[in-house]
């Protein structure tokens, strides 16, 4: 069953990022970033929505020990494990992000929501 296209809280939050904070061509590298992670995300059957926060180094690599789940209890679930694995696996050589906009992507909050994209 495909869930209706109601905007989730994280998406609304993304819309509310101050416009001045985003540079020209922002959507290109954000789309690229998203696509890179999606390529490695293999959500387990019945996977729940999980939010992962993490920090980035200037070279586009993930600060490995910075990955956290929201809420914290989700860290014990296979949904979080799959999300963390996706972020780390596809970012092992560093994500292709604009160095001059490092402050925009220094901290990431990524929502993994299998109910939006796929048949459940």
């Amino acid at each position: 069953m495909r869930r209706s296209a109601v905007l989730s809280a994280p998406v609304l939050a993304a819309l509310m990022v101050p416009v001045a904070a985003l540079g020209v061509g922002t959507s290109d590298w954000i789309d690229g970033f998203r696509t890179d992670v999606e390529r490695c995300w293999n959500p387990p059957e019945g996977s729940a929505v999980v939010i992962v926060t993490f920090g980035m180094n200037r070279d586009g690599t993930v600060i490995g020990d910075s990955l956290r789940s929201i809420p914290r209890e989700m860290a014990e679930t296979d949904s979080f494990t799959a999300a963390r694995r996706a972020i780390l696996r596809c970012g092992r050589d560093g994500y292709d992000l604009p160095p001059d906009q490092y402050e925009a992507w220094r901290e990431i909050e990524m929502t993994f929501d299998p109910l939006v994209g796929g048949e459940q």
């Binding site: 959507s27 001059d100 402050e103 990524m110 929502t111």
Partner: peptide, 29 residues
């Protein structure tokens, strides 16, 4: 978001954002 971004003035590396960059991942493999 892209439209908003297109309307925005270029930013420099020194400009700070408030809060993390939020991205939603919906299509895995």
């Amino acid at each position: 978001v892209a439209i908003l971004a297109g309307l925005a003035a270029p930013v420099t590396a020194q400009e700070e954002r408030s809060g993390p960059l939020r991205i939603e991942i919906t299509e895995g493999v």
